[in-house]
Design a protein around this nucleic acid. Structure first.
Length: 268
DNA sequence: CTGGGGATGGGGCCC
DNA sequence: AGGGCCCCATCCCCA
């Protein structure tokens, strides 16, 4: 489901940015967007959940419109300061097998095998696990060398989210992702929070009724370009999404999925 | 049940 | 580097 093309697939504890710089944003949405909205407040109880509010700075405006958050709504302190990544075990065993400093060309598998052979309890005692690739080692030194040669080098340019396990190849991608946790863009009308300003702008259109995207084939208009694009499919004889089995076409992927789940693919 | 609209999320791309 | 926009995807609801 996630369309996380930039998300690195393996999970590890790696480089983290300075979150104190990332969490605080003030988003200014032009007050004119609210001008045509007649209702002062539309409370949405579901947004009262703690998950929807985090270290948010609600934008301010000099416009005469004064109905910030519904009563009882206030920016919460947000996420816990740490979600507690598990630290690797401390260096407790340095005597059994130490490859540090050596330039041995042996592979990881050979190294692991040697560790096992040198320690009859190694199979049961493989307690040193790489938190990057999950390989296990019987000795800390074996794990340390593995990480030095392989996984640490890979993780050098990864940026992990402190709110979830996602990782990104760039700090910019991580910053953008973190906004999905902090939700810094808050609708002044209903208090709902969004990760990005343009998402908030689209939401504000639901209050104002503005529909800037018109269908060239009929008189319908839409507040969202994607919804117009989906609508345009309804004007097409051959829809974009086609069933592989019966060749029937659909205007939306979700409709195709429904069709497939309803048994077409079984019937053919 | 199906098709379509409304609303929203999130990564990518471009400036 | 960051903001704005694009595009794709999904969920929910209704006729």
């Amino acid at each position: 489901m996630p369309r996380s093309f930039l998300v690195k697939k393996h999970f590890n504890a790696s480089k983290k940015p300075n979150y104190s710089e990332l969490d605080t944003h003030t988003v200014i949405i032009s007050p004119y967007l609210y001008e045509s909205y007649p209702m002062p407040v539309i409370p949405q109880p579901e947004i009262l959940s703690s998950g929807a509010y985090s270290p948010i700075t609600v934008w301010t405006t000099t416009a005469p419109f004064h109905s910030p958050l519904p009563s009882g709504l206030s920016p919460l302190s947000g996420y816990p300061s740490s979600l507690g990544r598990v630290s690797p075990p401390p260096p407790s065993d340095t005597s059994s097998k130490d490859h540090s400093g050596s330039e041995s060309p042996i592979s990881d598998e050979e190294e692991r095998l040697q560790s096992k052979l040198s320690d009859p309890h190694a199979i049961e005692a493989e307690k040193f696990q790489c938190n990057l690739c999950n390989k296990t080692y019987s000795t800390f030194s074996g794990l340390a060398k593995h990480k030095q040669l392989h996984c640490d080098a890979q993780s050098r340019k990864s940026f992990s989210c402190k709110y979830c396990d996602k990782e990104y190849v760039s700090l910019g991608a991580l910053k953008m992702h973190i906004r999905t946790h902090t939700l810094p863009c808050v609708c002044k009308i209903c208090g709902k929070a969004f990760s990005r300003p343009w998402l908030l702008q689209g939401h504000i259109r639901t209050h104002t009724g503005e529909k800037p995207f018109s269908c060239p084939h009929c008189n319908r208009a839409f507040a969202d370009r994607s919804n117009l694009r989906a609508h345009l499919q309804t004007h097409s004889d051959v829809k974009k999404y086609q069933c592989k089995n019966c060749s029937k076409t659909f205007s939306r992927m979700s409709l195709l999925h429904k069709h497939e789940e309803s048994g077409c693919c079984v019937a053919h």
